[in-house]
Computed example of a mutant assay.
Amino acid sequence: MSERKTSKIRDQGKNALEWTVFGLSCLLVISMIAVLAVAAAGWQDQPPALSAKLGEPEIKERLVTVVVEVTNHGDIAASEVKVEVTRTAGGIGHQASVMLDFVPRHGTRRGQVSFPDAAETGDIRITGVGFAEP
């Protein structure tokens, strides 16, 4: 009796749900292969291209703090990114720097610099950006 049941199940094959899941799985795998192939075809080996910009300076407890945002427009990551910022107030220049460990390709990282003894924000600008390729 058990032989008849197994032979009937074997003769029926896959049902509609199994075929649907199989078809969707194949479609998903083929789509992922296509996306990866297009991404690999469009890959360019552009070196890191960094741009830095300053946020709005804030005075807190006689410290001027400024957010520094660094964006990498290249296809290769940059490491050990150092941004130097200069603040000029009352004819006196002060320099501060921030070191970012890693800026990924097409990514953005933020840091912050502070200047002591501030009664006013003064003129704040970026004076240098350096990096190393990992």
Rank of each mutant, 00 (worst) to 15 (best):
Q95K: 10
S2T: 15
E69Y: 06
N72Q: 02
P116M: 05
R62M: 03
V98G: 08
T108Y: 00
I126F: 04
I30N: 06
E69T: 14
G42Y: 14
L100F: 06
L36C: 14
L27N: 00
V113N: 09
A16N: 05
V83H: 09
V38M: 08
V103I: 07
L28I: 12
H94Y: 08
S97N: 13
W43S: 14
S25T: 06
P104W: 03
A78I: 12
E58P: 03
N72H: 02
A132V: 06
E133Y: 01
A119C: 06
E56R: 02
E61Q: 04
L100S: 07
A40D: 13
T65S: 15
G107V: 01
R110F: 11
S31R: 00
G23C: 07
V103F: 01
Q95I: 11
R62I: 01
E61W: 01
E58V: 12
S31F: 01
A49G: 09
E120G: 00
A34E: 12
R109I: 06
A96N: 11
H94F: 07
L17D: 12
V64K: 02
E3F: 04
I124Q: 02
V98P: 11
I33A: 12
G74C: 10
V70D: 10
H73I: 00
E3V: 08
S97L: 11
K82E: 15
L17T: 09
G128P: 15
H73N: 08
G130T: 13
R87K: 01
I59C: 05
